[in-house]
Design a protein around this nucleic acid. Structure first.
Length: 274
DNA sequence: GCCCAGGGAATCG
DNA sequence: CGATTCCATGGG
């Protein structure tokens, strides 16, 4: 990875083969917006940027080299050697086909609280509606910035009640959001500490929150806590497992099951819908 | 009206 | 343990 300043922009190299639109909209993140053709606006951890990609580099528009290095390099998982990981995962022919069709998807290192909250909202819901609820949560309680709103803090939401969230139209998930906010804000659940736990302990700890079962815990771990070897099983993946891997997952997934899951998830939804 | 959506909790046996 | 049922909301 290398950073180059070009006027007010920062160009980050090392993204050969990336499918940026799919990486931002494959169901792991819910807040990136294509504000003009090929340009995506996003906010994470209170920082905002506009990005585009030529398939080799990512350009962070109006973003300093320092901020790209401190915030966005980690967000886009620049420490993982994707060509090498994908070569191994491609020993499985279904993943090989998916990589050939869709290009490189990256697992994003998102803000843990935003990710936890977003996947609590995702329960028995569809992606467009998840996006709508998250959007209303941000415009209702977040701080306004140049391009949009920040994700509201756990501390702020901990002081609200489920009734205060009625305008989200999140249904039975509202009390779950409040419970998560209170446990995170009070420190009863420490998301940064969970990063250092082993997989089983991390999962168990997250499942102390009402509305968080194994699947929501696994998504939070994979998309924001650095657990790249977890394989969240939702209804699509359960279907794909039964159909494509009746005898269990291939050994070549081991070590990077999270990325494999993203390919199978997208493969199942596009090539093999119900 | 029906079925479905990146599930989870409560309540059975 | 596993299987059922209920939980809001909205699109097709």
């Amino acid at each position: 990875m290398e950073l180059i300043s070009v006027k007010n922009d920062t160009v980050m190299s090392g993204f050969g083969g990336i499918n940026l639109p799919l990486t931002l909209d494959c169901g792991q993140a819910f807040r990136w917006k294509e504000t003009e053709k090929g340009k995506f606006t996003g906010i994470s951890k209170g920082y905002e940027t506009v990005i585009s990609s030529d398939g080799e580099t990512i350009t962070f528009h109006n973003t300093s080299k320092e901020e790209a290095e401190l915030i966005w390099a980690d967000y886009f998982d620049t420490v993982t050697d994707y060509p090498s990981v994908i070569k191994k995962l491609s020993e499985d022919e279904k993943v090989a086909f998916a990589v050939q069709q869709y290009g490189i998807i990256r697992i994003l290192n998102q803000d843990p609280w935003e990710t936890l909250c977003s996947f609590i909202i995702s329960a028995c819901n569809n992606i467009p509606r998840i996006k709508g609820i998250v959007e209303r949560l941000c415009t209702g309680f977040g701080e306004e910035r140049k391009y949009g709103f920040t994700f509201p803090s756990a501390e702020l939401l901990a002081a609200k009640t489920a009734e205060d969230l009625a305008f989200l139209r999140s249904g039975y998930r509202a009390p779950y959001i409040i419970d998560a906010a209170r446990k995170v804000a009070s420190g009863e659940i420490d998301l940064e500490k969970i990063k250092k736990m082993d997989e089983k302990s991390a999962e168990k700890e997250l499942m102390k929150i009402s509305g968080v079962g194994k699947k929501v815990a696994d998504c939070t771990m994979l998309f924001s806590l650095g657990f790249g070897d977890t394989y969240p099983v939702d209804r699509h993946i359960a279907r794909a497992n039964a159909l494509l891997y009746p005898d269990g997952l291939p050994d070549c997934f081991n070590g990077h099951k999270g990325l494999a899951q993203q390919y199978i998830f997208h493969y199942q939804r596009t090539e093999n819908p119900i």
